[in-house]
Simulated scan of single mutants.
Amino acid sequence: MHEDVAHGPGRDGGPVGGRCGAHDRFPPGGGRWIRERILRLRPDTAPEDHGALGSDLTAWAEQFLDEMASPTGRAYIRDALLGDPDGGNAGRCSAYAADQLGVVLTRAAGRGDAAPDVETVMDRVVAPLMYRILFRPDGLDAAYARRLVAEVLGRTGP
């Protein structure tokens, strides 16, 4: 187990968002403190296997939304972007999500499921979720995440 300052020793911030570090108004060590938080963010476990791409990707997206939209997740997002003019922290965080999606999509391809590529899922599922979390959180719920997944997989309907 990991130490997540927001939750206390031995507790982590979740398998999708990883350890979402707590925030201090004036973090000790400045930028180094933030970089260390981001480096500890990488999830330790692979996304759950639900037996089909639609189920796997939907579960991942719902959990991602739940974790990133939480107060701790929002603090993590702020910390990741704080004082990061070159985008290195944000890039690492994005890579963690892409890695998790890569596991889901590779697993699906191994089962013979037709799967979009990682960048398509990042653009059509992760990016809209992050935008809504940051700028339009009202009404943001699991149904929205499910709709994004259905759309990226070429499904229609509610």
Rank of each mutant, 00 (worst) to 15 (best):
A142D: 04
G51L: 03
A142S: 05
A109V: 11
P158I: 03
R147Q: 13
P43Y: 02
T156C: 11
G29H: 05
D138R: 10
P15Y: 08
E62R: 04
R40P: 11
L101Y: 04
V152I: 01
R107A: 03
R37C: 13
V16M: 08
A75C: 10
V149R: 15
L140T: 03
V125Q: 01
R78G: 15
R11F: 07
A22S: 13
M130L: 10
V149W: 09
A115W: 03
G110N: 00
G139P: 07
L82S: 13
Y76L: 12
D4A: 12
A145N: 03
T156G: 15
D79C: 15
Y76D: 10
G31Q: 02
P43M: 02
D86P: 13
W33V: 09
G8N: 01
P28G: 07
T106H: 04
D117G: 04
A109Y: 06
V104C: 07
P9S: 08
A114M: 09
E119V: 13
P158Q: 01
D12I: 09
R42C: 09
I133N: 02
L65S: 02
A114L: 09
A75H: 07
P158D: 04
R132E: 02
M1R: 15
D123A: 14
D12Q: 12
D123N: 13
R132W: 07
G102R: 00
A90T: 04
A115T: 00
R11G: 05
D4T: 12
D99A: 15
T58K: 09
F64H: 11
L82P: 14
A150C: 08
L39C: 10
G73A: 07
A75W: 03
A6M: 09
M1Y: 06
R32F: 00
L53I: 05
G21Q: 13
V152A: 05
L153N: 04
R107Q: 01
P28Q: 03
R25C: 14
C93Q: 05
P27T: 03
I38D: 07
A98R: 12
A90N: 01
Q63H: 10
A145R: 02
S70F: 11
E119C: 11
V103D: 05
C20T: 15
Q100K: 10
G8F: 00
R74W: 02
R42K: 11
R111E: 01
V126K: 14
F26N: 12
F26Q: 12
L57V: 02
G112Q: 04
M122Y: 08
G112A: 05
L153S: 03
G18Y: 00
Q63T: 13
